[in-house]
Amino acid sequence: MGDKVYEKEPRTPEELAGYGSHVIQYSPAYSFCAGCDSCMVMCGLTHEGTAGHGNGRIQVDHGTRSLENHILACQQCADHPCYDACPKKDSAMKIDGETGAVYIDEEFCIGCGLCAKNCKFQPSRITMKKDRVRKQWKAAKCDLCRGNPEGPQCVKWCPVQCLGLSEDAVLGEDGLFVPQAKQ
């Protein structure tokens, strides 16, 4: 990736203006992530019926010793560099007209990985679902569980409810997200 400079996750209203609705992690003062990976596991299970790093559209960066864990979720960039990089845009990668989220239509995904490589964030928020044959790899990306009336399953299944949606959050006193109603 050369000298690519990666973005920081947006927090302030000004920063958030460049991003669509996305899954955020609340301040530990509101709820501390227990590191159980339920978000990642249930994401994979509800999307694919299987769990693994490739098909979890949300990942957990575990502090090996600290036990402080950081959620790695797609920030749904308004300028969508992943979409722009896709050689099959509008067939393999599409934009949800309602949420603005970029989503993947696997039928047309050729598994080139350009979307993942062009993610603004490090680690990339787009994962690659591997297969026994390289040509059958597919990209996996958070689509906010589009079409699911329960909304994002990672948020639903978090036992300590430390995840939410960016539009429902504001910055707390510690500069981290808290739910609006809790401020």
């Binding site: 003062a29 509101y30 709820s31 339920s38 994979g44 299987t50 490739g54 098909n55 300590v160 409810q161």
Partner: peptide, 27 residues
């Protein structure tokens, strides 16, 4: 790779039924 259970609905039911999970913020 991946791991796959046989019955996602049963997995979901167990997640809610086993030991009354908190499902609430914990600071």
């Amino acid at each position: 790779g991946v791991v796959g259970p046989a019955d996602l609905e049963k997995v979901k039911a167990l997640r809610m039924d086993m030991n009354n999970p908190m499902m609430a913020p914990k600071p």
